[in-house]
Design a protein around this nucleic acid. Structure first.
Length: 284
DNA sequence: TTTCAGGTGGTGC
DNA sequence: GCACCACCTGAA
């Protein structure tokens, strides 16, 4: 079998900035490598000179899917250059977070994951998602002594009772997962529908599921459907808009007019800057 | 031991 | 349409 390997240009890709900005919860760092599950495969990203190699270690994944996952069609260098010119905050954010890419993850996985993310924090989200995968996913194999599982399928999860879904740290969100899974199965809902909807319709469509509000819907559209005009507003983004741009009211309108077409990307980079730099006491 | 963070759904105005 | 609050649990 041919090895699936993808070279990611170090100028437009940085693993830490991509994997640790709150868009994904299953990638883990191991020395200079990152290990994560993409669909039905275990993938390793490791440095090679100034670039990075993404390689399938276990399971199977098409080369085209791997390229899509890392959003290789988008010219991130051009986007960074364009946005860096817009204002000093974006310029600073890109000095910290250059190489951040928006991953194109699986829509069903994003729906489940971001329901879990509501009123929650990253370490707890990771706990819940990993436990869900270990209990109901498929074992891909072992790498460096750690077992890796796929994200469970709709068919498997739809068999679960609400109690079955009470994985680690999930709390009352098990009810949201259960009601959403029940609806997906009972109505045989096609999760590819939002690909063909514009942002507003996509948000309304996703809000048919219990546990999905505006913020969660925008996350699912940005990270699962490649809608780069989606802009999830969480407490960090609220604080970022207030502190960096002096905008407290009508934040939606500000984002749409000020950041324009690349607002999803611009906001993600500012979010990363805010959490990892500004909030830790640096202001420059 | 207590306090806190974190979106959604529901209630009451 | 807006303001409020319950919901749950790991971490500090």
């Amino acid at each position: 079998m041919k090895k699936i390997q993808l070279c990611l240009n170090g100028k437009s890709f940085h693993p830490k900035h991509t994997f640790e900005n709150g868009q994904c919860f299953r990638w883990i760092q191991d020395g200079d490598e990152y290990i994560g599950v993409v669909d039905e495969a275990l993938v390793r990203v490791k440095p090679k000179g100034r670039d990075f190699i993404a390689e399938v270690l276990l399971g199977s994944l098409e080369m085209d899917r791997l390229k899509t996952y890392f959003d290789c069609e988008t010219d991130y260098l051009a986007m960074e250059a364009l946005l860096s010119q817009k204002d000093p905050w974006l310029e600073k954010a890109f000095k910290i977070g250059s190489g951040l890419r928006l991953l194109r993850q699986d829509p069903f996985e994003m729906l489940m994951t971001f329901i879990i993310s509501s009123n929650n924090n990253i370490p707890k989200i990771r706990l819940s998602v990993e436990d869900l995968c270990a209990r109901y996913g498929k074992l891909l194999g072992t790498y460096k002594g750690i077992d890796y599982y796929t994200f469970p399928t709709l068919d498997v999860l739809a068999q679960c009772s609400e109690d079955d879904l009470k994985v680690k740290a999930i709390g009352y969100r098990a009810k949201s997962l259960y009601k959403t899974l029940e609806k997906l199965k009972a109505e045989a809902i096609d999760l590819s529908i939002p690909f063909g909807l514009d942002l507003e319709d996509g948000i309304e469509w996703l809000k048919q599921f219990y546990g999905v509000g505006d913020k969660v819907a925008q996350c699912i559209l940005l990270f699962g459907y490649g809608k780069e005009d989606a802009y999830p507003i969480d407490t960090w983004v609220k604080q970022m808009l207030k502190e960096l741009y002096g905008v407290e009211k009508n934040q939606k309108a500000f984002i749409e007019t000020y950041f324009g077409d690349h607002r999803g990307f611009a906001q993600q980079v500012l979010f990363y800057y805010m959490r990892n730099y500004y909030a830790k006491g640096h202001v420059d």
